[in-house]
Design a protein around this nucleic acid. Sequence first.
RNA 1: UGGGGGAUCGUCUAGUGGUAGGACUACGGACUCUGACUCCGUCAGCGGGGGUUCGAAUCCCUCUCCCCCAGCCA
Length: 563
Amino acid sequence: MSSKDEAATPTNFIRNRILKELEAGQYEEIVTRFPPEPNGYLHLGHAKSIVLNFSLAEEFGGYTNLRFDDTNPAKEEQRYVDAIKEDVAWLDYQWKNECYASDYFETLYEYALHLIDNGLAYIDGQDADAIREQRGTLTEPGTPSPDRDRDPAESRELFERMRAGEFEDGQYVLRARIDMAAPNINLRDPVIYRIRHKAHPRTGNDWCIYPSYDFAHGQSDAIEHITHSLCTLEFEDHRPLYDWLIEHLPVSSRPYQIEFSRLNLDFTVLSKRRLTRLVDEGFVDGWDDPRMPTIAGIRRRGFTPDSIRNFCAEIGVTKSESIIPFGALERNLRDDLNVRAPRRMAVLRPLKLVLTNFPEGETDWVEAANHPQDPDMGTRQVALTRELYIEQDDFMEEAPKKFFRLKPGGEVRLRNAFIIQCDEVIKDEAGNVVELHCTFDPETRSGQPGADRKVKGTIHWVSAEHAVKAEVRLYDRLFKVPHPGGDKERDFVEHLNPDSLEVLDHARLEAGVETARPGEFYQFERLGYFVPDPDTTPEKPVLNRAVTLRDTWAKLEKQLRQG
RNA sequence: UGGGGGAUCGUCUAGUGGUAGGACUACGGACUCUGACUCCGUCAGCGGGGGUUCGAAUCCCUCUCCCCCAGCCA
């Protein structure tokens, strides 16, 4: 393997560990799982986990299960299950088994009985407040529950009656009997079963007692013969409990939990709790709002699965907490789309331009390459007429020296067509520029001999007659500050960017783009990458700008303005 | 001030006793009918202090800072 290939296969501490284990012959195959709770949509943080789990199993010839951690019917819904499956599939990963923690409720119940019978769990009749008070604090040990030494036979009977529905919510809980003085609070007799008279999306009313996360997760891993159970850092101090349960239960395999740091992106939030609030309180237009860092959101925005996967490979996997610039994600999209997106012309904010020496009523069809570096993508004919639209930004009446676009008396090339000169600037009463009168140089038609006269700038345009009106939605960062979730003084929603969505109603597209469907993408030259929104129709096209092109001019202009 | 983690260029990340490397960003340049792409180049780092060693990002001591944990959430 060349050094370049090695660089293309980034490694990480988990992969290194597996490599060693494999070398030592500890595993036949690597089995991982992606275990979302179906209580919300997947976001980019989940994407990191998905890519990690699937790529590890794939590399080492194993497989990955999709497992829904559905142990809390109070929060979970089928629609989230459906959305999650769609998102994982969209990322182009195939799970081996579709599993549910709820599939294991019967086994888990038996495991609980096993603990009870061995004096390792007991039924506590206290309420939540009492249990909390007895848990102690970070610096003081807990105090034992009065029920801690309940006879196992009695606990068993109570547990069976819990299952039978004889008690109310909260009346009893099952607790593991570990160590009330443990410095790790998770070991101070954690609750492992609670009563919830609530229909479960999958098991309906079969159960009224449900296992806690801690009691379900590791055992589910064991049942599925997961070898490496990867999760985020906040579960690190659950690992002793994870191990304790595995060791004290008659499970059929021995999974290991390994923790890595979760993904953070600047100028957004990546916690399901916060994202849920944005949706529920109407700050965004739903889970798939293109401004949301959800898989559904960025998909609608125009991101590709490859760009997400590449991004996840690029950021690596460690235990140190990090915040990745949102721009890193965008660059991956550009890199992907640059290669694949056909080029088109579109004008976002139209300024009328009349070619005064162009015959009225005629159309000149100019040839345009669909991709400057990829001739295989072919060419197309674009209509050039006397009346055109150009971008408002591409004309300046009083232009700085570095402005290479159109200015009074100046010359510029119309992309794929002629060099034109600006002869006259038409204004309204208020002094706004409303129209430009220009002449074109017939000798400079693109592709013709002698057309290679150099001018500084090239601008895009569309034919006023042929272009199609469209709505274009531009997206900016959702928040105004880099770390909206890190402000302890203020609610994160106070940092929302009021200008995160800009809707342009008068954009004009090169003819043909109006029939594109979601999932197709274009580069509008000099503007960025655009995809049709699900709202689009041929009669009223709606396009999303997924990401701009890199814009050196904008940067220069900003510097000029700031001196 | 209990327990568990973490600290390497601006950012992310390699490196577990032998010249701190890569990617991104930034900056400079080349090219250009996209101020895109591409190409070339430059800047830039081991949290602090001790110690061991011929030699320390790596081992030891110590200090500092950051994150997580007191749900019948996951």
